[in-house]
């Protein structure tokens, strides 16, 4: 196994003066390629903050963040945008899909925005991914007509579209009933096993965390485990 993500001495502080809130305080973390990890911690502990920094959506206050050997702290906004398009997939808790598009259109978005158009190859992969998510009969459904669990499975398919090395999922099952939640988790575990995609999944559900090979806990702005 090789190190996919390396984070050293990561500090993230929101606000300044009286409202200064230190959230991450010198956090160190290494994710090995192919790992399926859970990120635990109480609400407000900084799980989302860490995931958005790892996803290059936010810059840390200080510290080092490397992925695939690239220094992502120093990269420009457009370089980070291109990087996350190619190497990072996201699954969020809310606001996951584009509401005016079909399941397939959502899934192939990362490929289409990269190519400038929706290619046949992308469409074929999108359909394959949706089929693997058990959504073969929902491919052309407008996302508004999908259930919560189906939406999250579409989001997982989309996160995998560009074959990223890393998928960051921020409480992907937080909004789902138990059956849907375990279905989504089983699919994630299956993909991790089949394709070796690295996953980091934040949750405060111990049962979900138990499905992951590694458990990380955010405590006092640091990661344990």
């Amino acid at each position: 196994m090789s190190a996919l993500v390396v984070v050293q001495d990561l500090v993230k502080t929101f606000g300044a003066g009286l409202t200064e809130t230190p959230v991450l305080r010198g956090l160190n973390l290494t994710l090995q390629a192919g790992e399926l990890s859970a990120l635990l911690g109480p609400s407000g502990s900084g799980k989302s903050t860490l995931l958005t920094i790892l996803g290059t959506l936010m810059q840390p206050t200080s510290g080092a963040h490397q992925m695939l050997g690239q220094d992502l702290v120093r990269a420009t906004d457009s370089a980070r945008t291109a990087f996350r398009n190619q190497h990072i997939g996201f699954v969020f808790q809310f606001h996951n899909l584009l509401p005016d598009f079909t399941a397939l259109e959502n899934v192939i978005f990362p490929a289409a925005v990269r190519a400038g158009r929706e290619t046949g190859v992308a469409r074929a992969r999108g359909m394959d991914l949706l089929t693997r998510m058990g959504l073969q009969d929902r491919i052309h459904f407008p996302t508004a007509h999908l259930s919560g669990g189906q939406k999250q499975r579409v989001a997982v398919a989309r996160a995998l579209m560009n074959r990223p090395e890393l998928v960051l999922a921020d409480e992907p099952t937080g909004n789902l009933d138990r059956a849907s939640a375990s279905q989504v988790m089983q699919l994630i575990a299956q993909i991790n096993k089949d394709e070796g995609t690295t996953f980091l999944i934040s949750t405060h559900d111990e049962k979900i965390a138990a499905l992951c090979a590694r458990q990380l806990v955010v405590v006092d702005g640091q990661v344990e485990g």
């Binding site: 996350r84 969020f92 584009l98 509401p99 925005v113």
Partner: peptide
């Protein structure tokens, strides 16, 4: 706004 956020997270550039 949320959709713009999603698109940006998925790697859509500001130009796009």
């Amino acid at each position: 706004r949320p959709e713009i956020g999603i698109m940006r997270a998925m790697g859509a550039s500001q130009r796009f």
